[in-house]
Amino acid sequence: MTGQFETRLGELGVTLPDAPAPAANYVPYVIVGDMVYVSGQISNNGGDLITGKLGDNMDTAEGAAAAKTCAISLLAQCKAACGGDLDRLVKVVKLVGFVNSTADFTEQPQVINGASDFMVEALGDTGRHARSAVSAASLPLGVAVEVEAIFQIK
């Protein structure tokens, strides 16, 4: 049986992928009590990295689309942390977004809106969260965006 959140994702044309494996010596998430801390998820499209630098060879809309892919991976990690039952998700508590951007690029919030807007579109009020959006001189593997999250689960 598909739960309410995955039904909504399906209506949006999104199927959660398998949770991506970590690329180094860390775990994809840590559960402490009813909180899940998810490691940063990098921008990718079906396993193909979305690389680039905002303010140089990517525009804000492309960055927002890359941030949305990070949000999808974050939900995949949350689902894994919930034993496959995404309906255990109570709240998206916080997102922290990193944008690979030039020194003069100032639209980091609009880029990370790609992740934030998706969380609210897919999860309704459960997806409303606190957030930070910061610039980075570079990100792992040259990706455009990386987003980490804190979720509350039951």
Score class of each variant (00 low, 15 high):
113 N>W: 06
129 H>T: 14
145 V>S: 09
144 A>C: 14
106 T>N: 09
38 V>G: 05
22 P>M: 02
143 V>A: 04
144 A>W: 08
64 A>S: 15
109 P>W: 06
113 N>H: 12
65 A>K: 15
69 T>V: 09
38 V>Y: 03
32 V>A: 13
55 G>T: 04
24 A>H: 14
78 C>P: 06
62 E>N: 09
101 S>L: 03
120 V>I: 15
73 S>R: 05
39 S>W: 04
38 V>F: 01
100 N>L: 05
140 P>A: 05
104 D>H: 05
127 G>Y: 04
82 C>G: 08
8 R>L: 00
111 V>E: 08
31 I>T: 14
26 Y>A: 03
61 A>K: 14
130 A>F: 05
16 L>W: 01
88 R>T: 03
125 D>Q: 13
56 D>L: 10
80 A>H: 05
31 I>N: 06
154 K>F: 00
96 V>K: 15
126 T>N: 08
146 E>S: 11
54 L>F: 08
94 K>M: 07
69 T>N: 12
152 Q>R: 15
9 L>M: 14
22 P>Y: 01
77 Q>E: 12
75 L>F: 10
104 D>Q: 10
124 G>P: 09
97 G>N: 09
107 E>K: 15
91 K>I: 01
79 K>Q: 12
86 L>S: 06
82 C>T: 13
134 V>W: 04
10 G>W: 00
150 I>N: 08
61 A>M: 12
31 I>F: 00
151 F>C: 03
10 G>T: 12
151 F>Y: 05
25 N>E: 11
135 S>F: 01
121 E>Q: 15
100 N>T: 10
138 S>M: 09
52 G>P: 09
71 A>Y: 04
91 K>C: 00
24 A>S: 15
2 T>W: 01
137 A>I: 07
46 G>A: 03
43 S>R: 11
80 A>F: 00
103 A>W: 04
86 L>Q: 02
116 S>T: 13
54 L>E: 04
74 L>K: 10
86 L>A: 00
147 V>N: 06
99 V>D: 02
140 P>R: 10
33 G>L: 01
91 K>Y: 01
106 T>D: 11
88 R>I: 02
143 V>F: 01
38 V>W: 00
36 V>F: 05
58 M>Q: 15
125 D>S: 14
96 V>H: 15
46 G>S: 02
101 S>W: 07
148 E>M: 14
69 T>H: 12
21 A>N: 03
50 I>L: 12
54 L>H: 04
126 T>H: 10
26 Y>F: 07
2 T>G: 00
